[in-house]
């Protein structure tokens, strides 16, 4: 792969979702992909803009799309599922509604011709596998049982997600290639409470508890996700869930890119596995060197 792929880390990847950023960058390096961060990108507006002002909810992603286009990026990876959904959702709406596109051009004073294609973490990783990453997965994870968790934003949204919304399978190829065993479970597309994490913590604890319980019932060793919001609800709040008398849970929640990074033989610390709230280093212990 020689054409650079644009990179939109989004705000969480500099904070709560830091390990996602680290693992994505490390993985891209191993795969020989040139990831170029969009210069001066801004926040996508997330649930907040979407909730309070629909113009803003389109204008913020629009500016980023326009920047990417201006910087010559035909494809942009948005690893955060929420950013992916907002950016791609905006691109889809703009393509469909020329009047809206015109309005946004006026609001942002930036032209956008609609040339940028947004990639989700799943699409990106499958792309890397196509481009030869599979051969570089020298440290398969020895049958680690994983429950792939798509949540809302990597499963639903017509025209945004290219997968079966009820029974998605986009992560499976990568997980199998990384030497994992994908367990069948029920909560792959249930909502964790998402953006109401801070303002409706009670609800989030309930929903996330149910997800963790189902993954445990399915005998998963870990939940695999692609969304920093889901990750912080399931990982960071797992202790709170236990403290609230639910669970108790002790289930690592790891990013798809971390799993692939491990299988590619990247040191767990470089991937950010040491930054998890629920010990994720035990997942790294499942790395086995493939005999040549």
């Amino acid at each position: 792969m020689t054409t650079p792929i644009g990179y939109y880390p989004g705000c969480s990847l500099h904070g709560t979702g830091r390990e996602l950023d680290q693992s994505i960058r490390a993985l891209a390096e191993v795969a020989g992909v040139d990831l170029r961060e969009i210069k001066d990108w801004n926040c996508c507006g997330a649930t907040a803009a979407h909730s309070l002002n629909h113009d803003l909810a389109v204008a913020l992603p629009y500016r980023t799309l326009a920047l990417a286009e201006d910087q010559g990026l035909a494809e942009v990876l948005a690893p955060c599922a929420a950013c992916f959904s907002r950016l791609k959702g905006t691109a889809v709406r703009l393509a469909r509604d020329p009047k809206l596109a015109q309005k946004m051009t006026e609001i942002t004073e930036r032209p956008y011709r609609g040339t940028v294609r947004i990639l989700s973490i799943i699409e990106f990783i499958n792309r890397l596998l196509d481009a030869g990453l599979e051969a570089k997965l020298t440290h398969p994870l020895g049958g680690l049982k994983v429950a792939p968790y798509y949540g809302c934003l990597l499963a639903r949204g017509e025209d945004i997600v290219d997968d079966d919304p009820e029974q998605p399978s986009g992560m499976e190829r990568a997980l199998v290639a990384a030497g994992c065993e994908v367990v069948p479970w029920n909560f792959a597309v249930e909502c964790c409470g998402g953006g109401l994490s801070m303002s409706k913590t009670e609800a989030v604890l309930d929903l996330s508890d149910a997800i963790l319980s189902d993954a445990e019932d399915a005998q998963a060793d870990a939940i695999v996700t692609g969304c920093p919001m889901c990750h912080s609800n399931l990982d960071m709040r797992q202790r709170t869930i236990n403290a609230a008398g639910r669970g108790p849970h002790d289930l690592p929640v790891v990013y798809l890119s971390e799993i692939l990074g491990l299988a590619a033989g990247i040191e767990p610390e470089r991937l950010g596995l040491d930054r998890h709230f629920v010990d994720a280093m035990r997942v790294a212990e499942r790395m086995t060197e493939r005999s040549a």
Partner: peptide, 11 residues
């Protein structure tokens, strides 16, 4: 204000 926008209903 409780709707989290998960799109389950829409789907």
């Amino acid at each position: 204000w409780s709707c989290v926008g998960c799109l389950t209903c829409t789907q």
